[in-house]
């Protein structure tokens, strides 16, 4: 069944692009249902920082080769200290996306054993992809301040 039939609340952005807004606790169920109904390609998991609302938006992208349809399941979590359940049992590659989002945004995924250092190494500051992290200021304060090697 197509996503629109399964979830009548789904909104069609354009042909072949469906967006479902839902809440945190329903995601596992929806992803599972879609997986069983032909949406077998998990495209990616991405995270958008809506700093004004104080929320992170997690977007689960799924694609059906059969219906040629792309579904975005979007949920909102709090920016600080909120966590999400891992979906790595449904699709193994979600694990990697969760690792990245944990490192770059600081969202915690309960049940994922590989969270931790992934891309960065020894990063002491706040997760860099958050909107309140000013990369230009950071660069000016660190890299351009490192002294030149003085020759006598």
């Amino acid at each position: 069944m197509m996503a629109k039939e399964l979830f009548p609340e789904a909104q069609e952005l354009r042909k072949g692009r469906i967006r479902i807004e839902t809440t945190k606790d329903k995601v596992t169920e929806i992803v599972k249902k879609l997986k069983e109904n032909g949406y077998e390609h998990f495209v990616m998991l991405s995270c958008v920082d809506w700093i004004k609302d104080g929320k992170f938006e997690l977007v689960y992208h799924m694609w059906s080769y059969e219906y040629r349809e792309h579904v975005m399941i979007s949920i909102k979590v709090d920016r600080d200290g909120d966590s999400m359940v891992t979906l790595r049992d449904l699709f193994p590659q979600i694990e990697t996306y969760e690792r990245e989002i944990h490192e770059m945004f600081g969202v915690n995924f309960v049940g994922n054993p590989r969270l931790g250092e992934f891309i960065l190494e020894g990063w002491p500051h706040m997760p860099p992809m958050r909107k309140d992290f000013d990369t230009e200021k950071f660069v000016n304060e660190i890299y351009y301040k490192i002294p030149e090697v003085k020759e006598e």
């Binding site: 080769y65 193994p92 590659q93």
Partner: peptide
């Protein structure tokens, strides 16, 4: 497994 693993 190919599609399930996200191979493209």
């Amino acid at each position: 497994k190919a599609i399930k693993w996200g191979v493209t």
